[in-house]
Design a protein around this nucleic acid. Structure first.
Lengths: 327, 327
DNA sequence: TTTGCGTCTTAGATCGTTCTATAGACTGGC
DNA sequence: GCCAGTCTATAGAACGATCTAAGACGCAAA
């Protein structure tokens, strides 16, 4: 297990100075084509890789974006995926830190800070507004999927009001009047969507019915059973997983979806897209949100724009679980 | 956006030298209780956090374990979760790198290398044996969930032969004779499980039937439809997601599970555990595997044990999708 | 007073980079 | 044939920590 080669080793092998090797490795101007080749050759032979710790330490810019995500939320993985793409496109790199069992968000964020990230993207932060502001005083922080984070942070989120509105426009246009909402319990965007549902229903002169739910299939299942007593013609779920639970409870009761009752999800997650599921859903478009968050972080870093709260409008993806209201 | 405070700043604030602050921050011997308190106080007031880049650069040991995982595989998230726990328990930290869309495994691994990780844990590596060996020549590499990686790497995997054997022991004990296997297509452990199935069935004097499948619900759905023509009494799926697809296809055809046909999954993933799913499954116990991989990496690092191939025996989790063979 | 020996503290080198300033080596214009 | 201007190459100081070796101090023994 030999030591890894350093700039110095390459310099000696190529018969030039350290600085010149550095110049070549960074593709910086100041080296002739001939020496460039010679150095690159030597570097390749030694299997040299620049030590990012040393590199990051010296250069004031690290070009590192920190992303904290949760292992228990598959949706986050889609975002991480898109964030990588967006960052490399703009010449930045991404450092990942997970919120896991026994590893609180604060720990995840701090480890990113120690790594020397220049900006932070926190997905669905559960931290308090004060703590977030504390971090935001030191570097640009973008909250993804949550917007009530105070004025010192950026946020990129999806317009829940619009999402619910679109959903209800669609359902009422299909003739639905008795529409229920299964909420997300104590999940992050739950209150927002619940209130949007109430307001929107009221605006249409319809009676709103809200059942306590949650973010998982289990929660949906429970809520769905509760709905059976007095079946609505359509249900708007807090998210897709919840919708699947609701659907399952209907199925178990011998009801057909969408003939007897329509079920609409939220998130347009991979679950919704499965060929045998084909759940109609309100799409937040994770990749788009991720790109927006990355761009926001970099813009804050490079320009001196003030924090902004970006809101994207979701759109409807109609599949097989919604249809005309039963007569 | 003020600069982050350094050791020097703390030293000045506390009226001592840099080195002393370093000693206090590391809890190293060589400082009196009085100065300790004074320094800690000053550090807290300035909001000082040691710069891990500088720290890592100087000290030869980084105590950093690199973990590469895939964003598209929810199962990996469970492993990452457990890996964090295992590493902190032994005083190590974890650096994460994802293989994502447009970010190949080699890139993920190299970024971990640049970060200064002392050992690597690669989950279900898709890299060639040669490339893996190349990395293994420089630092301990543990392959998780794949064991055909050559002699220079460690591997921690689950005994697929035993898993399939346990599954068939169980099913035959319930009276099943006509058992089909839906394989994983070109997924990593697929050939292993397929051959184990063939061998085990042959050993029992039963005719084995193998249907090409895959790792997702879609694949299961397709395979399940194929099975309908000549229905077996039990199906062993490549994994849980595949099993769910199979189940779904049976359901669509009006068949009851497990009364008409038993369906057995593999992985005991979160999907299998869902209350309305309750899929019987062969459990690989992700947390256990993750812990084993972390321990393996650290042992290699600290002792000078040679690479080993650890194999854990999976166990059966019986839920509601398997039952006695129909008469 | 000097020496010796802990304990506490410090200056200075070091890790592998990047960056600034400067030294040489050419060109070309007059 | 000399000076300005460009290009290439180098030395040496950062970056923010750790680590080694040696200095300052107090106190007991010679």
């Amino acid at each position: 297990m030999g030591k890894r080669p350093t700039l110095m080793d390459v310099a000696e092998a190529a018969g030039v100075s350290r600085a010149l090797v550095s110049i070549v490795m960074r593709d910086a101007p100041g080296a002739s084509e001939a020496t460039r080749l010679k150095v690159q050759q030597a570097a390749k032979e030694l299997g040299y890789r620049p030590d990012s710790r040393a590199r990051l330490l010296r250069s004031s810019r690290t070009r590192l974006l920190g992303v904290s995500f949760s292992t228990s939320h598959p949706f986050h993985a889609e975002i991480v995926d898109a964030a990588y793409a967006g960052a490399t496109l703009r010449g930045y790199d991404i450092a990942l830190s997970a919120v896991a069992n026994g590893r609180p968000e604060s720990r995840a964020v701090e480890s990113l800070l120690d790594l020397g990230c220049e900006a932070l993207i926190v997905i669905s932060p559960a931290l308090g507004e004060d703590e977030l502001a504390g971090y935001a005083a030191r570097l640009p922080v973008v909250s993804l999927l949550r917007d009530d984070v105070g004025e010192s942070l950026d946020s990129v989120s999806s317009d829940d009001d619009a999402g619910i509105r679109i959903a209800l426009e669609y359902l009422t246009s299909l003739g639905h009047q008795r529409i229920a909402h299964v909420d997300g319990g104590d999940a992050v965007s739950s209150p927002q969507r619940r209130e949007a549902f109430r307001a929107e229903m009221a605006g249409r002169g319809l009676e709103s019915r809200v059942i306590p739910g949650g973010a998982t299939e289990e929660d949906g299942l429970r809520a769905g059973r509760e709905l059976l007593d007095d079946l609505p013609t359509a249900v708007v779920a807090f998210n897709d997983r919840c919708a699947l639970g609701i659907w399952e409870s209907f199925r178990a009761a011998g009801l057909r979806v969408p003939e007897d009752v329509s079920v609409l999800g939220y998130d347009d997650s991979q679950f919704a897209r499965l060929s045998y599921v084909q759940l109609s859903s309100v799409s937040q478009d994770a990749p788009l949100l991720a790109r927006a968050a990355v761009d926001r972080a970099i813009d804050r870093l490079e320009g001196s724009t003030p924090p902004a709260h970006l809101v994207r409008t979701p759109h409807l993806v109609i599949r097989n679980t919604t249809g005309p209201a039963p007569k």
